[in-house]
Amino acid sequence: MAVLGGTERAAKVRWSLINIVVLVYALVPVLWIVSLSFKTKETLTDKNFIPREWTLQNYADIFTTNQFLRALLNSVGIAVIATLIAVVLGTMAAYAIARLDFPGKRLLVGVSLLIAMFPQVSLVTPLFEMERSLGLFDTWPGLILPYITFALPLAIYTLSAFFREIPWELEKAAKMDGATPAQAFRRVIAPLAAPGVFTTAILVFIFCWNDFLFAISLTSTTSSRTVPAALSFFQGSSQFEDPTGTVSAAAVVITVPIILFVLFFQRRIVAGLTSGAVKG
């Protein structure tokens, strides 16, 4: 017993150490940015982890420049619209994949997998050319469209895992109770799929929110530049001023909501990501 307890404690200690190493490795850069965002211009480069002089000036600065607010509006607008459309389309596609046997079903699943795996970098130049000739370059739709394209496979995958877990007999029961297919979907299937749809929406939103590649390549002005791209255009008030403080503050502003969101809905997201795997 004592021996067993001893090895158990040793294992615990070992795991705790590993956890701490991983946490530190992952969190230090994030905390560093947080720390930078609270530092004054003079102490920015003092290499202290904890700011010696705390200031909110960087936050005040970004919220008084049009540049950041406009980018924030673009980010929210583009991510929300892309998420809505991707989730609606994904729901319909996933429902069909989970429930119906139609010719080309495997092909559809395969192609959507292919899209998810396609290196996005290789598409940037063609997309740039296409959007320029279509007049979509540097517009909201110019970002929303590629986001939908690359978010859909993710949406379809998570959602079809959820749909597969809703017993088909419920739908049959609804039909027997006198429901049209549309009523059965709206009153029985949709309420049950809601947690899955919600999880998918969060995942898709994060994907759109965090994107840098398309945001930097397919925009040229503040009219559609999202925050991740706008950050790289931040400048100090003079050529000699270092914008690190404001960039850090902006990074914190767009990251913290996501972190809180994920922490808050962690269980749901994990359930959503693994539900297909666990229950076949």
Binding site: P167, A174, G178, T180
Partner: peptide, 30 residues
């Protein structure tokens, strides 16, 4: 005819009750 136009009720092996509705709502659904 579609099931809803046949006026037939069915009891399933799994019962197929709507999990998000109360017993009352389940029975009231049709």
């Amino acid at each position: 005819r579609a099931p809803k136009d046949r006026d037939i009720a069915m009891v399933f092996q799994s019962y197929a009750l709507y999990p998000h509705m109360s017993v009352r709502e389940n029975m009231a659904f049709p």
